[in-house]
Amino acid sequence: MRRADRLFQIVQHLRGGRLVTARMLGERLEVSERTIYRDIADLQSTGVPIDGEAGVGYLMREGFDLPPLMFTRDEIVALVAGARMVRAFGGAQMARAAEEALVKIGAVLPEQEKARIARTEIHMPGWVVDDATRRSIDLLERAIEARDVLSLNYKDEAGKGSMRDVRPLGLWFWGKVWTLVAWCELRNDFRAFRIDRIAEAGASGRTFRPERGKQLTDFYRTWEAREQN
């Protein structure tokens, strides 16, 4: 969880007007009590009316509310365009999440800013990515986060298939084509797989840990070195 998100969650937990200990907050947010103490101190220094002390607990005085989100015109356009791009070209779950994010943003914007979302005339066709590819994108994205080794049935440009286990590292979008960047255990090297050529992808039942030389940052360094030569 990003620190900004954690600070927001602390404020939310303290809204009830009851005493909450640093231990309780730490358990809920999966951080140490020391981290909670620092976060509380930082919130207090910015004017958030939190009362209490370490070892006793904290509560927030009534009447405090977070200010409405403020975005510039260009920021709203960027958010709307990004959400619509994900809806058009991303996975099925990504598309739904993008729609929900726009609804949430619209709900907290000041009234005079809400109309800008509807007035943003930036659109993408929804037929470019088929349903099978959308499902694959979601599956691969979850595998990247969980560090699940995947078994792929992959077809090359000539249509020849091969089975291989890969460590999924990242997804790249090239306009109409998505690729999976992965460490291929068959080739013992990095490979980029076009998602529309993955005939089948399934969990191998194994997970992996980051290893030096086999991470996405290592791929970037290798790719940049090749581009410069």
Rank of each mutant, 00 (worst) to 15 (best):
R18Q: 13
R18D: 11
L19C: 08
A22K: 04
A22I: 07
A22R: 04
R23H: 12
R23F: 06
R23C: 06
M24I: 10
L25M: 13
G26T: 05
R28A: 14
R28G: 11
L29Q: 09
L29G: 09
E30W: 07
E30K: 14
E30S: 14
V31N: 07
S32N: 09
S32E: 11
E33Y: 04
R34T: 11
T35H: 11
T35Y: 09
T35A: 15
Y37F: 13
R38M: 06
D39V: 09
A41T: 11
A41C: 06
D42R: 12
L43N: 05
S45P: 02
S45H: 07
S45G: 08
S45I: 04
T46F: 02
G47V: 05
G47D: 09
I50W: 05
I50Y: 04
I50H: 04
D51G: 05
D51V: 14
G52E: 09
G52F: 11
E53R: 14
G55Q: 09
V56N: 14
G57S: 09
L59Q: 12
L59E: 10
M60F: 07
M60K: 10
R61P: 10
R61L: 15
E62A: 15
F64K: 08
F64Q: 07
D65V: 14
D65I: 10
P67D: 14
L69G: 15
D74E: 15
I76K: 01
I76S: 01
I76M: 03
V77H: 08
A78D: 12
L79Y: 05
L79M: 15
V80Q: 02
R84L: 02
R84W: 00
M85I: 02
V86T: 02
R87T: 03
A88T: 01
G91F: 00
Q93F: 03
M94H: 10
M94A: 12
M94R: 05
R96I: 00
A98F: 01
E99F: 06
E99N: 07
E99I: 04
E100D: 13
E100W: 03
E100F: 03
A101C: 07
A101F: 03
A101L: 11
V103D: 10
V108P: 01
L109V: 03
P110D: 05
P110H: 03
E111P: 05
Q112N: 08
A115E: 13
A115Q: 12
I117S: 04
T120F: 01
I122V: 14
I122P: 01
H123V: 10
M124V: 14
M124K: 08
M124N: 08
G126H: 10
W127K: 13
W127P: 01
D131T: 14
A132R: 13
A132M: 10
R134E: 00
R135P: 01
I137Q: 08
D138V: 00
D138W: 00
L139N: 05
L140A: 11
L140M: 15
L140R: 11
E141Q: 15
R142I: 10
A143S: 13
A143Q: 04
